[in-house]
Amino acid sequence: MFDNIVDILCSIKDDQPELRQSLSPQTDLNNDIGLDSLQMIQFMLKVEDQLNVVIDYDQFDYEHLRSIDAFITFLISCQPQAQPVYEDVKQ
């Protein structure tokens, strides 16, 4: 899951090609990476989509962004996404 998070972060911060080498499980998602508010929303949406989880924002806390490891631990506690309704629609 760490590699997936790194891939997502690098796709959002594509103006920083050196980012991948600097990321570790202890990297602070707020202070070390510097996602602005729009990038943070993009990050969360991509995480939900690509990792097939539903982030429970009632349980989500700033502490979960203290490290990539802390974020992964939080994600493991999240429920998998149900299949989107529109997949059932025949065209």
Rank of each mutant, 00 (worst) to 15 (best):
I12T: 04
A70F: 06
D7S: 15
E48W: 10
D15L: 04
Y86P: 02
V47A: 12
D14P: 02
D88F: 04
L38Y: 12
Q91R: 10
D7L: 11
T73M: 09
I8H: 02
D36W: 13
L51Y: 12
V53Q: 00
V47F: 08
Q26H: 12
S77W: 14
S11V: 00
Q91C: 00
D36G: 08
C10F: 09
Y86N: 05
L75G: 08
L23Y: 12
D58V: 11
D61E: 15
I72G: 00
N30K: 08
Q21N: 11
Q59Y: 15
Q50A: 07
I5L: 08
D69F: 03
I12S: 01
D49L: 13
V89F: 14
M44D: 10
E18P: 03
D61G: 11
L75C: 06
D49I: 13
Y62H: 15
Q21G: 11
E87N: 10
S67T: 04
N52S: 14
Q26E: 14
I76E: 11
L51H: 13
N31M: 02
I68A: 03
L35W: 02
K46T: 11
C10M: 13
L35E: 01
D7K: 15
V6C: 15
E18W: 15
I33W: 01
L9I: 15
P84T: 01
I33Q: 04
Q91D: 05
H64R: 07
M44A: 11
I41W: 06
Q39V: 06
N4H: 02
V89Y: 10
R66Q: 10
S67V: 05
Q59K: 12
T73I: 14
I5G: 00
D36L: 03
D32A: 05
Q42S: 14
P17S: 03
S11H: 08
Y62P: 12
I41R: 09
L38C: 08
I8M: 04
S11L: 03
H64V: 11
L35C: 03
M40S: 14
A82W: 05
N4E: 07
Q39C: 07
L51R: 12
F71S: 00
F43K: 02
D58C: 05
S11W: 01
F43V: 01
L9H: 07
D88W: 07
I5T: 02
Q21T: 12
L23N: 08
I76H: 09
Q79K: 10
Q59T: 01
S77R: 09
E18L: 11
E48G: 10
V89T: 07
G34W: 06
V6F: 13
K46E: 09
L9D: 01
R20L: 05
V6S: 10
G34D: 00
Q39N: 06
Q50S: 06
D32Q: 06
L23Q: 02
V6P: 08
I72M: 13
L38E: 03
N4W: 03
P80D: 00
Q91L: 05
K90D: 09
D36R: 10
V47G: 04
N4A: 08
D88C: 03
